[in-house]
């Protein structure tokens, strides 16, 4: 009885369980993380991405930063995308983009989720 209970207690366990039910474990897991990322990205106190970036579905977006599109093609290396969001001043010392990771605007987990979401754009 103890073992199943501990599986239910972790989100990984829950995803595995869902995955086995729908037979598409990887897709199900990524969709969930990307959805979390979208929520973080659109939270004004967190990512607030649309303040500066347009993307499909963005409501009244700003135009300070480039439009977010074809992101998988633009960032084939996920680590590079994460580094860009973590601290954009590394690539461009004069960028206006806040260093979301370096200044702890987002937690590591939130950053990972946002990366997954950005790659769906």
């Amino acid at each position: 009885m103890r073992k199943p209970a501990s599986i239910f207690a972790t989100s990984t366990g829950a995803v595995l369980l869902l995955g086995s039910a729908f037979l598409t474990p990887v897709v199900a897991a990524e969709a969930t993380l990307a959805e979390t990322g979208k929520a973080v990205a659109e939270d004004r106190t967190k990512g607030n991405c649309f303040a500066c970036h347009d993307y499909p579905g963005a409501v009244l977006p700003g135009n300070v930063g480039p439009k977010l599109m074809n992101m998988k093609a633009r960032f084939p290396d996920k680590a590079k995308l994460r580094a860009q969001i973590y601290d954009a001043t590394k690539n461009n010392p004069n960028t206006i983009m806040p260093p979301f990771g370096k200044h702890r605007i987002l937690t590591d987990k939130e950053l990972d989720a946002v990366v997954e979401w950005v790659l769906t754009l």
């Binding site: 649309f50 303040a51 500066c52 009244l60 977006p61 700003g62 135009n63 300070v64 004069n94 206006i96």
Partner: peptide, 15 residues
Amino acid sequence: AHCHVDNAGNNLRAN
């Protein structure tokens, strides 16, 4: 200067 020089005239959301 980031907002009012470099990005003057651009939109932050709808502003």
